[in-house]
């Protein structure tokens, strides 16, 4: 998080620092001064030493002084905060555009050439503009190392931008409470060199950074990471929000369909239906209405790859 090379992680670190340390410095000075004064008075004018109080009901000059000084300080603090905030609204014209889609409880990032990623991969020293889209409730994209965040409000068009100045991996959190898995709604900002980025972006044959191997289902896993499936469904048998993928394919499940219980077998048709119409058949013991339809977001070819992955999770 902190620079060892003298270069800030983003262009907003210094504007934050100016404002923060200016106010914090004055505050610490006043807090110390006032506390010491108070303790000194309490000690010096203790009843035992100072038997009779000397009455003094006020002093106009003092009141004016300690009104004027805080007013000036407050205006200065406001000014630094405002000046530091202004650049946040000025997106450079040459910024690279990435669209983030937030949903309960994952982020995904789409680039202009159509490439999608579960991590925000960006080239160093290139301004990045992020279109903020929420599919359900309010989320907030927060990159602590960059000292910025912006709420992602459903139904509103919003953008944020930053200039990554140092290569490395940085945490990206959701900062607006969004329900059960809020604290697990996180991702990474991966800042790489411009050359590496060009190669990564141009390589549309693999879907995500992680995909290197060709084991069965590997591509399916990448697709599911990008689509955020793993935020609610585990691959190791743990119950998160939805049913686990472990030993799922071919299993008999009792589902609620239009209010009646039906026993079905998890096959390709069922999986496809569950992705496109997630609330049609609800597996018994799970809540309705939490998952959205992925119709139009996941192609039939991708579903085949996902099924490949699910099959690979069946313990022999």
């Amino acid at each position: 998080m902190y620079s060892t090379t003298g270069i800030d992680a983003s262009n907003f670190v210094s504007t934050f620092n100016t404002s923060f340390y200016f106010i914090a410095g004055i505050s610490l000075f006043l807090l110390t001064g006032l506390t010491i004064t108070m303790l000194y008075f309490v000690f010096k004018y203790n009843k035992k030493k100072h038997k009779v109080a000397i009455q003094n009901e006020g002093n106009l000059l003092l009141e004016i002084t300690w009104t004027a000084i805080p007013v000036i300080l407050a205006l200065m603090m406001f000014y630094y905060g405002w000046e530091g905030w202004k650049p946040l609204g000025k997106v450079p014209a040459n910024a690279m555009t990435v669209t983030t889609t937030a949903r309960m409880w994952s982020f995904s990032f789409r680039y202009e050439n159509g490439k999608e990623s579960a991590d925000l991969v960006v080239p160093v020293n290139t301004p990045v503009k992020i279109n903020l889209v929420s599919l359900d409730v309010i989320h907030s994209l927060f990159i602590p190392a960059y000292r910025i965040k912006s709420d992602i409000v459903p139904g509103r068009e919003k953008v944020m931008w930053f200039l990554p100045e140092r290569e490395g991996d940085y945490d990206l959190y959701c900062a607006e409470y969004c329900g059960l898995r809020h604290s697990y709604m996180k991702s990474m900002v991966k800042v790489i060199s411009k050359e590496k980025f060009a190669a990564w972006l141009g390589d549309t044959t693999t879907l995500a950074v992680a995909t290197t191997g060709t084991t069965p289902g590997e591509e399916g896993l990448s697709i599911m990471r990008i689509q955020g499936c793993l935020a609610c469904h585990s691959s190791d048998g743990t119950k998160i929000v939805g049913p686990t993928y472990l030993n799922l394919f071919g299993k008999q499940e009792v589902v609620t369909r239009n209010g009646t219980d039906v026993t079905i077998t998890v096959d390709s048709a069922y999986i496809k239906r569950s992705i496109f119409e997630p609330n049609a058949d609800i597996v018994k013991g799970y809540p309705k209405g939490l998952m959205q339809s992925y119709k139009g977001k996941i192609s039939d070819a991708d579903i085949t790859k996902i099924i490949e992955y699910l099959k690979s999770l069946n313990e022999k």
Partner: peptide, 26 residues
């Protein structure tokens, strides 16, 4: 007085737009 001052001063930090962008909701 002591805790109220700390509360008030930290409120100034949060009232500052540039600082709030990082500290809000933390």
């Amino acid at each position: 007085l002591f805790v109220f001052m700390i509360g008030g001063f930290s409120g100034l930090i949060l009232g500052s737009l540039a600082a709030n962008v990082h500290l809000h909701n933390t």
